[in-house]
C-alpha cells in the first residue's frame, strides 16, 4: 500500500509540472463548455416550437434529454481523444529516462507500479470531470432538470473514463515509444467507441456481443438514471482487464 501511494504521489507531481495535464484539463473543459452551450441553444429552439409539438401529441422537450445526456455523451467522445495523452507517457517515459530500471530493481511489485500509476490518472480524471460538473450545476441553478440522472450519468462517465485510462495504460505498456503508445491507444479506444455501429447490419449473436462491449450502449442505463448491474460490471471489467494486461506487459518486460 505504501508503495502504491508513493508511486501515485510521484506520478501526480510529474503530471502537474508537465504542461500535458493542464493542456488536457483546459481543453476538456473548453470543449465540454462549447457543446454545453450548443445543446442549450438546441433546447431553447425546441422549447419555442414546443406548443406546436404538444398540439400534435408530442412530448415537451426535456432538459435532461436534450442537454445533459448530450453533454455526457459528448464527454465520452472527447475522452477517447484526450485520455491517450494522459496515459501515453506512463510507462514509455520511464523506459526512456532509465528510471524503469530503478523501479524494476526496487522491492516494488509490478502490480504496485501499475496500481500506483493508475491511481494517479484516476485522480486527474476525477478532478477533470468534477470541474466539468459546473455545466450541469448551472442547469440545476437556473432550470429544473432531474438530479438523479445527472449523478448516475456522471458516475457512468467517470467509470467509462477509468476504463479508457486502464486500456490506454495497457497499450502503452507494450511499447517504449510515447508517440506509438498515444496513437495506438487512440485507435483502440476509437474502435471500441464505434464498435456497436456494425451491430445492426450484422444481427444475431454478434450484434449482441458488439452491443455488449460498446461503452456507448453500456452508458445508456446510467444516463437514464439507472445504475444497472450489467453496466457497472461492464465498466469494472474494462478497468480490471486493462490493469491485468498492463501488469502482464510489464512482467514480460521484466523477464525478457
Amino acid at each position: 500500500m505504501r508503495n502504491i501511494w508513493a508511486i501515485c504521489k510521484r506520478e501526480l507531481l510529474s503530471f502537474f509540472v508537465s504542461p500535458i495535464a493542464y493542456f488536457v484539463i483546459t481543453g476538456f473543459t473548453l470543449l465540454v463548455g462549447f457543446f454545453f452551450f450548443n445543446y442549450l441553444s438546441y433546447f431553447q429552439r425546441a422549447q419555442q416550437m414546443a406548443p406546436m409539438l404538444e398540439m400534435r401529441g408530442g412530448e415537451a422537450p426535456n432538459l435532461n434529454q436534450y442537454v445533459i445526456e448530450g453533454v455526457f455523451q459528448t464527454m465520452v467522445v472527447i475522452l477517447v481523444f484526450l485520455i491517450p495523452l494522459l496515459t501515453m507517457r506512463t510507462i514509455a517515459e520511464e523506459k526512456r529516462k532509465g528510471t524503469f530500471e530503478l523501479l524494476i530493481t526496487s522491492p516494488v511489485s509490478v502490480g504496485e507500479i501499475v496500481l500506483g500509476k493508475f491511481a494517479s490518472i484516476a485522480i486527474v480524471l476525477l478532478a477533470m470531470l468534477s470541474a466539468a460538473l459546473i455545466f450541469p450545476a448551472l442547469l440545476v441553478e437556473f432550470g429544473n432538470p432531474e438530479v438523479p440522472p445527472i449523478l448516475s450519468g456522471f458516475l457512468g462517465v467517470l467509470l467509462c473514463s477509468l476504463g479508457f485510462a486502464s486500456i490506454g495504460m495497457a497499450v502503452s505498456s507494450f511499447t517504449e515509444n510515447q508517440v506509438v503508445a498515444g496513437v495506438a491507444s487512440m485507435v483502440t479506444l476509437l474502435l471500441l467507441y464505434v464498435i456497436q455501429a456494425p451491430a445492426e447490419s450484422l444481427g444475431g449473436t454478434w450484434a449482441e456481443v458488439f452491443q455488449y462491449i460498446s461503452p456507448i450502449e453500456q452508458l445508456q442505463d446510467p444516463l437514464r438514471g439507472v445504475l444497472s448491474l450489467k453496466s457497472m460490471s461492464y465498466f469494472l471489467s474494462m478497468i480490471l482487464l486493462g490493469l491485468f494486461l498492463s501488469r502482464r506487459a510489464l512482467e514480460a518486460y521484466r523477464w525478457r
Partner: peptide, 15 residues
C-alpha cells in the same frame, strides 16, 4: 538487499 546505481543515474528530472 541491494543498492544499485545503473550506468545512467535514474533520476526524475521534475523532482
Amino acid at each position: 538487499r541491494i543498492g544499485y546505481l545503473p550506468e545512467n543515474p535514474p533520476l526524475y528530472g521534475e523532482m
